[in-house]
Simulated assay, not measured.
Amino acid sequence: MTTQTTQAADTATDGLAATRRQLWAALEARDEPAATAAVLGAHDAGAPAEDLLLDVIGAVQARVGTEWAADRIGVAQEHAATAIQERVVAALSRRTADGAGRRPEDGPGTRRVTVACVDGEWHALPARLLAEVLRGRGFLVDYLGAHVPTPHLIAHLHQTGTDVVALSSSLPIRLPTAHAAVTAVQAIGFPVLVGGAAFGPGGRYARLLGADGWAPDARAAARLLAAGPPARDPARTGVPGDLPHLADQEYTLVTRARTRLVRQVLQGLQEAVPATAAYTERQRERTAEDIAHIVDFLAASLYADDAELFTGFVTWTAGILRARGVPGGALVAALDLLAGAQPEFPRARAHLAAGRRALVRPPAPPAPGPHS
């Protein structure tokens, strides 16, 4: 790389960083015109639309999530920021609609792609960013948005056709629904590419559910699709019978018992963690929501037969609760109460025990000093 090329790359990187700062400041102020002006101004100055979508809007959205997790912004502010981001994407899309990338008729490499979030998945911005990146690269895209019930998706495919379906999901609790969608789409002859945090590190759950392909991000998805729709491996199937561990019915029974389990744990916490007995009604509601999430992630880990899915959630939750001043022992106590409520479920108890160990893991010994 020449010195001139390196300098140009550094300038572009600095420009994107400056745009991220401007966009973040606008979101903090809930100033939609300023947010739009920051991104469109950068585009006018020569920043590629794809870089603005992924390295500015996408990166800033990740910061929104981090700030919420650290309790530096509230839920309402997080929702407002996300809504503004979606409208900024729309503004950039209108700006680039007439000239972004190849035209669909330019060559055989172009594919028609249907992009959708799985049923129950409301985090739509990652899927929207993928749709815009694909459009910018010349694909014909049907973007269906958030929370697309599988029957509606199938009806759409019957009516319109496609070359490949790209499904997005951010939460592992949607894995059973994602599995149903993958299986249904494949059953009518279309390959499925999946992406999003729900599918685990390295796409481990994408393979488990029998998806035809997985991409870690929008650029990787575009590169995969440029080579044509993913070809299904006939040795890899994605039907419920492929998950023999589900035969023990633990996933089904835990899911059905969700309301009872939440109520039982909430009541037990008042004795196990006395501070919770003085909670306000609002605090009790929030605690019930947290317990419900724990049960949901336990069910998802049983579906995938992967305790790491559950331990990852509970350690993340511990950080969330710590930032909000929740007593440190409350989460461990909740896991113990859940285990006690399910004595006949060995896999569930094993996953809960793994989560407990992750929370109470003893600190690492101090590093040896210079004279050790």
Rank of each mutant, 00 (worst) to 15 (best):
R72N: 09
L53T: 11
L171T: 07
L337F: 01
R95K: 11
A124P: 11
T287A: 00
H147F: 05
G340P: 01
A364H: 10
H179F: 01
R128F: 11
I320Y: 14
R284H: 07
G369P: 05
A231R: 14
L352V: 11
A221H: 11
R112I: 13
L266T: 03
D336Q: 08
A178G: 04
A80K: 02
P346K: 06
R21C: 07
E67R: 05
G136T: 01
L352R: 06
A358Q: 10
L140H: 14
P176W: 00
A76M: 15
T311W: 04
D51N: 10
V113P: 11
A227F: 12
V182T: 00
T237A: 15
P201N: 13
D71Y: 10
A222D: 08
V254D: 00
R135I: 04
L269R: 01
R174W: 07
S301R: 02
R263T: 04
G138M: 08
D44C: 06
E78L: 02
Q270H: 04
Y205N: 14
F310W: 05
P172R: 09
L171C: 10
A184L: 12
T317Q: 14
P343K: 04
V185P: 09
G136L: 07
A131C: 05
L331Y: 00
A292R: 15
R103N: 11
R347A: 03
G228T: 13
P362C: 05
E86C: 14
A333W: 01
G369M: 09
V326P: 00
R111F: 11
E50I: 02
R256A: 08
G101C: 03
T280C: 05
D290Q: 09
H79F: 08
R21S: 13
G319C: 00
Q264A: 11
L261C: 05
Y143K: 10
R223Y: 10
W214F: 14
A180G: 09
V239K: 09
A307Q: 12
Q186G: 07
L337R: 02
W316P: 15
Q77T: 13
G46L: 14
D55W: 06
E121W: 06
L352C: 05
D71P: 03
A26M: 04
T6C: 09
A211V: 15
G325S: 13
A47F: 11
D336L: 03
T183Q: 10
L23T: 13
E289D: 07
T255Y: 00
E105I: 15
A307I: 11
P104F: 14
A91N: 07
Y205G: 15
L27Q: 02
G203D: 06
D296M: 10
T160C: 14
V75T: 09
T11N: 15
